[in-house]
Design a protein around this nucleic acid. Structure first.
Length: 426
RNA sequence: GCGAGCGUAGCGUAGUGGUUAGCGCGUCUGGAUGUGGCCCAGAAGAUCGAGGGUUCGAUCCCCUCCGUUCGCCCCA
């Protein structure tokens, strides 16, 4: 270990070689959101802890087990943002966006923090692309946000994805369903796994999602929410499916898809790599949350949106061997040697940059050989040589680093313009 | 939070209960004193993840911790 310090568990440095992925994704996000009429918003890295306790649900894993909370010097209870939706809803209310033309379409990319056991594709700090549409109850919008993600992934060269879709009805009818579900499982409580016994009390919908052997016998006979939706939710669900079909987005209904946040109603979805056994491979997921803004103290305002993890998007891109050509770190490399050459080299590099040409100067005092190696590694097209001889004559040598390395001379006063012209000419 | 695997220079790796822990890539320097990419040579770079224990002696055995990977939970 090179240092006694290392990046905190579950965090990572994004090194220069990985930056092209981030830049490409950022660029694609800008373009795709523009196609759908979204506007960017940025919210703070931390918020009042209560926003998530109230909004996300204080019995959800994200809030109960994974939230980074702290009390600041003024005694405020704050939390590093664990998920984006409540923060954007808070901003919607705070800035009176209800008086904007509805619906309001917002997106952001920002760091999210969850205190969880790290694995590949699961980090304590990860970056999420988030889209939210506030003020529309239209089922078409549910399909539309899925299409945003679908379009983005396609642009980035990710293939082999599928949408898992479900409807978990509205709050009231869901309550009735949960009662039926509990009634179904109650007689078998003792036969269930410990996890599922806990779920029976805390989050019964999760029972259907159990992977434990002991729970399997009961899953089949359990009532499925999606099969007995309220009329309104069923109609909504049908429109979502129709729209997805119309858009040519393949999906499967997954009656077991529940998602871990309390505020969802009706549509929930995840986008997953089809042939991936990994537990944490979901690259995007979201749903409708008509009850969230009222929960935060706002007026009845429907909403739908999603989050998608940039780190996981990159893993998928790498799986499909999406790569980026190495970009040269400079165009012109100024090699210099001898008494006072550093002044001329520095001045020349400045002239080049003023002309819009990336330029670097070799390390003072290093051998020409070493400086030329640096020029080679930099990917520069031209090396300019300022040695004792050249300076004495007021000249600079221009060496073409491509091909045979042919050299010509030009006056110091005009060499920058000369090289600029040659670069423009190709 | 639970279970399991892994942890040797920047990266990839070899190796052994006991003299200076090897190799490749990369980095730096040089190849008669002003020139890159190939080649050659040399150098730097590792308290063998950290701490403790067993032992005459541990990188190699045991424990704890840290990190990472896989599964569970959950999620992006």
């Amino acid at each position: 270990m090179a240092s006694r310090y290392q990046a905190p568990r579950g965090t990572q440095d994004i090194l220069p070689e990985m930056q092209p992925y981030w830049a490409a994704i950022q660029q694609a996000i800008v373009e795709v959101t523009a196609l759908f009429g979204f506007r960017r918003i940025d919210t703070p890295v931390f918020e009042a802890a209560g926003l998530f306790e109230k909004g996300s649900g204080d019995t959800t894993d994200i809030v109960e087990k994974e939230m980074y909370t702290f009390r600041d010097r003024g005694g405020e209870d704050l939390a590093l943002t664990p998920e984006g939706t409540p923060a954007i809803c808070r901003a919607y209310l705070e800035h009176g966006m209800a008086s904007w033309p509805q619906p309001v379409r917002l997106y952001t990319t920002k760091a999210m923090f969850r205190y969880d056991r790290p694995q590949k594709g699961r980090y304590r700090q990860h970056t999420q692309f988030d889209c939210e549409v506030l003020g529309s109850a239209d089922a078409l919008v549910d399909a539309e946000v899925m299409e945003v993600l679908w379009t983005l992934y396609a642009r980035l060269g990710i293939r082999g994805l599928g949408v898992r879709l479900n409807s978990i009805d509205d709050i009231e009818p869901r309550r009735a369903y949960i009662d039926r579900l509990k009634a179904y499982y109650a007689p078998h409580r003792e036969e269930l796994s410990e996890d599922s016994q806990r779920r029976l009390d805390r989050n019964p919908l999760r029972l259907l999602d159990s992977k434990d052997e002991r729970d399997q016998p009961f899953k089949e006979g359990a009532p499925k929410l999606v099969d007995q939706l309220s009329d309104a939710a069923a109609a909504h669900h049908q429109v979502v499916m129709d729209a997805l079909n119309a858009a040519g987005i393949p999906f499967v209904i997954d009656p077991l898809l529940v998602r871990g946040l309390d505020y969802y109603n009706r549509t929930v979805f995840e986008i997953v790599p089809l042939e991936d056994e990994r537990a944490q491979s979901t690259i995007g997921g979201g749903g409708r949350y008509d009850g969230l803004i009222p929960l935060l103290g706002g007026p009845a305002t429907p909403g739908v949106g999603f989050g998608s993890g940039i780190e996981r998007i990159i893993l998928e891109m790498q799986k499909y061997e999406v790569t980026f050509p190495e970009t040269p770190s400079t165009r012109v490399y100024v090699v210099h040697r001898g008494e006072g050459s550093h002044r001329a080299a520095f001045k020349l590099a400045g002239e080049l940059r003023a002309a819009g040409i990336p330029a670097m100067v070799g390390e003072t005092g290093r051998s020409l050989k070493s400086q030329f190696r640096g020029a080679d590694h930099s990917g520069a097209r031209y090396a300019l040589i300022l040695g004792e001889d050249e300076l004495a004559r007021g000249m600079a040598v221009v060496k073409d680093l491509r091909g045979g390395g042919e050299q010509t001379e030009a006056p110091l006063a005009t060499v920058a313009a000369d090289v600029a012209a040659r670069l423009r000419g190709g």
